[in-house]
């Protein structure tokens, strides 16, 4: 068995909050608090959860935009957890990111050619201008644009076309891992499927691994091989994609799934499971023990004492709840 492309062990990313006026012990936000998972080459790992649960922070720590507080990140056999900024560039060639908002993530003063060539200039100083142009033109065609588009500016494109430019920028360095942080949620509904198909085609052709973050649970299921559900910095459930939807174990996962619109008016009327009540608590002052207990219909006394561990229940399906791990 080959080693996984990405392995994340007990990753923690804490931030100090200044000027909150609270006691010293509480002025740390545990945005990511003990996350463990692995991702194989050519596979997709989906990360879901409500906003503020730490899923984007987790991705950014993995990309080493932050320096993790503790834990270990291994990419392609190399421990990158505490690698210095000088040592990182060759690592960053292997991991790239596709952003949510193609209106905000592309510099409006740069032409599409310069936008797509920028990663090459940063990481491939050996390439000549002509070689870079050829690579850009080839990439443009692969993402469904044409050579003629290369001289234009982002404002001349529709949202879907801009996101194609975003995909081209991320893939021009031929990375092995691509973090897709809500890559379609800013796009019109009729365009979303185009981008999703594009991402899947690239995965098939290039053997890319995706860390796919989205709040649209149907889209995450469609894209991912494995899915983890995150709540206040911790994974509460992790499972092969189909199993998670067929047999959700954690009350939080069940609540999230019950919140998804049924997709058909008749199914909507037949719905029995109730969704989630209340809001996600402040990460500055999370509940003791299991962080979900304040919204959980099954909360017991012991849930307040200690957080339940993520426990395997078979078939690679793990959940952190005393209901399944008495």
């Amino acid at each position: 068995m080959t080693a996984p492309l990405l392995s994340v062990e007990n990753l923690a990313q804490h931030f100090r909050v200044r000027g909150s006026g609270r006691a010293e012990s509480r002025s740390v936000v545990r945005a990511v608090d003990g996350v463990t998972f692995t991702l194989d080459e050519g596979r997709t790992f989906g990360l879901v959860g409500e906003s503020g649960c730490g899923k984007s922070t987790c991705a950014r720590s993995i990309l080493r935009i932050y320096t993790p507080t503790s834990g270990r990140i291994t990419l392609d056999g190399e421990d990158i957890t505490h690698m210095s900024q000088d040592a990182l560039p060759p690592i960053r060639r292997k991991m790239q990111m596709i952003f949510q908002d193609p209106y905000a993530s592309l510099n409006p003063r740069m032409t599409v050619r310069d936008l797509i060539a920028e990663p090459l200039r940063a990481h491939r100083p050996d390439m000549s201008r002509a070689e870079a142009d050829d690579a850009v033109f080839e990439m443009l065609e692969k993402v469904g644009l044409t050579r003629e588009h290369s001289g234009r500016y982002p404002h001349e494109f529709s949202g879907g076309q801009r996101q194609r430019v975003g995909v081209a920028r991320a893939l021009i360095l031929r990375p092995k891992l691509v973090v897709c942080d809500e890559p379609i949620s800013a796009l019109d509904v009729s365009i979303q499927a185009q981008i999703v198909n594009l991402l899947r085609d690239f995965q098939e052709k290039l053997g890319l691994a995706y860390l796919f973050i989205a709040h649209d649970l149907s889209m995450v299921r469609y894209m991912s091989d494995t899915i983890s559900v995150m709540y206040l910095g911790k994974l509460v459930e992790s499972s092969p994609a189909d199993d998670l939807y067929a047999r959700p174990l954690h009350p939080y996962t069940r609540g999230l799934l019950a919140s998804i619109p049924a997709g058909h008016p008749r199914l909507a009327r037949l719905r029995t499971e109730s969704g989630l009540s209340g809001d996600i608590p402040s990460p500055i002052d999370p509940p003791s023990g299991c962080a979900f207990r304040t919204r959980c219909p099954h909360a017991m006394a012991r849930c307040a004492e200690a957080a339940p561990p993520l426990t395997e229940v078979g078939g690679g399906h793990r959940a952190a709840c005393y209901l399944i791990n008495p």
């Binding site: 979303q192 185009q194 299921r221």
Partner: peptide
């Protein structure tokens, strides 16, 4: 739109263009 019962091995059928 992929529903929760969408076959994951099948491609989505997008509306072409913008």
């Amino acid at each position: 739109i992929p529903g929760l019962s969408q076959d994951r091995s099948r491609r989505l059928i997008p509306i072409p263009g913008s």
